[in-house]
Design a protein around this nucleic acid. Structure first.
Lengths: 239, 239
DNA sequence: TAAATAGTGTCTCTCAGACATTATGAA
DNA sequence: TTCATAATGTCTGAGAGACACTATTTA
């Protein structure tokens, strides 16, 4: 079970290494995550995050993007994907010792999955609903970490555009923030802030009237990655 | 080499799992990191981050704190330790497939190691010097990630106190910021900001004259973990 | 017309940055 | 005394939050 090795540390026992994905999106104003229903033990019938084992000669990032493409059916270079954290409780998988490297992915509102989904494939569910259910393994904790990472990064990066289609309005961008943070934002202040942040969005000449009201100018994501000064989320008021 | 498993993902090949430590401190105004000199191949004679393999039934965090105690000879609960990131390039170790979970530790200026250190044990070296040398494996990248994490966290958390002794002056706290960020800060503005940040530091009745000049009040670390509004680092001026 | 959303402007308060001034020790 | 650092204070400009007002569409 263990082999001895030069002077480094004595022994190195074998582990299974997996990747798990926290895939988030915003669908018609609701913050959603991707989950599968497990078809086998352990945790058969439970909801779980998508994931799988890393192949022998595969880079961790590559394993994550492979799983992401399998689940979303979208080329992973069109989605934002970053490493989240690694979970290594010896008892997290009852079968054997598994170390799982979790990744966070952000996606726009994908047309898929529609109504008819196979049992084996993933479905979008509101994040609140996922938090309320008992996910398999330690996936509740992983999901919580991913959601918190996403919420935090909207503050000081331009990542909110990863939730939008290629062309979007300031109002649509604002509704992303509102869904992820669970707070309404002032449309006037938000508009001023976004426009003033150099490189956050680039204006197009076209407008759209989807959403009703006065036509809104369309924008695309700008080249900037960081937001400074940040767009701070409303702090929780401590009574 | 691979086993087949229920329906999950087909196969799960075995990996070695290691932890690597980025241990940072500030010694007399210089930002330093802990490094060992490797005694065996591969990378014999090169500097490397301390680390080792995770035991069979050991939690990742436990493996990290075990290694940290071995290297610093300080109970790890007295130091700040957090997971940094996981590195899984299939070629990062020429011997075999190793996935390494890196941890970031912050320590005050420990009296150890002094002059007479064994060859096998770790030594503090200026971070700038470590960056300038070719570390073993992918440790230059891990170190860079750890240093950037530390720099960023000083902005919005109270972690700078982890670099200080139990009792410290505002000036000593400021010199931590200056060493880690590599920027001088205005002593007056810094003092005002720290005092105004609720829970950052708690004043003691005693003062000290170490450092010369007017006696400075001593403080201990306060209960707050987050800093809001943050203490922003000086931005790089783009000409 | 009303209703809805887009976009602009204004006021105020907080806070960061620049810098003056006084306080209190050691050499 | 001089020198060094601590501690407090003042002024100014950037920017966030609150909110009034105008613009342009659909129903």
């Amino acid at each position: 079970l263990t082999k001895s090795v030069d002077g480094d540390s004595g022994t190195y026992p074998p582990f299974a290494v997996a990747v798990d994905l926290v895939v988030l999106t915003v669908r018609s104003g609701t913050f959603c995550g991707l989950a599968i229903e497990r078809g086998v033990e352990p945790f058969e019938g439970r909801l779980a995050l998508p994931g799988g084992f890393v192949h022998v000669d595969e880079h961790l990032d590559r394993a994550a993007s492979r799983e992401l493409e399998e689940e979303t059916r979208v080329p992973s270079r069109r989605l934002h994907l970053e490493q989240l954290a690694t979970y290594g409780d010896p008892k997290r998988d009852p079968r054997m010792r598994v170390v799982s490297v979790a990744y966070l992915a952000l996606a726009p509102d994908l047309p898929w999955p529609a109504a008819g989904t196979d049992a084996a494939s993933a479905e979008w569910r509101p994040v609140a609903e996922l938090f309320a259910s008992k996910l398999a393994f330690d996936h509740n904790g992983i999901l919580a970490d991913g959601v918190e990472r996403a919420r935090a990064k909207l503050e000081y990066t331009t990542l909110a555009t990863a939730f939008c289609d290629r062309e979007f309005t300031i109002g649509e961008l604002r509704s992303v923030y509102e869904a992820v943070w669970g707070h309404d934002l002032d449309p006037r202040n938000f508009h001023r802030k976004v426009i003033a942040s150099e490189g956050f969005v680039v204006p197009l000449e076209r407008t759209t009237t989807r959403g009703g009201g006065r036509p809104a100018r369309l924008y695309r994501a700008g080249p900037a990655e960081d937001l400074f000064p940040p767009l701070v989320r409303p702090r929780e008021t401590s009574p």
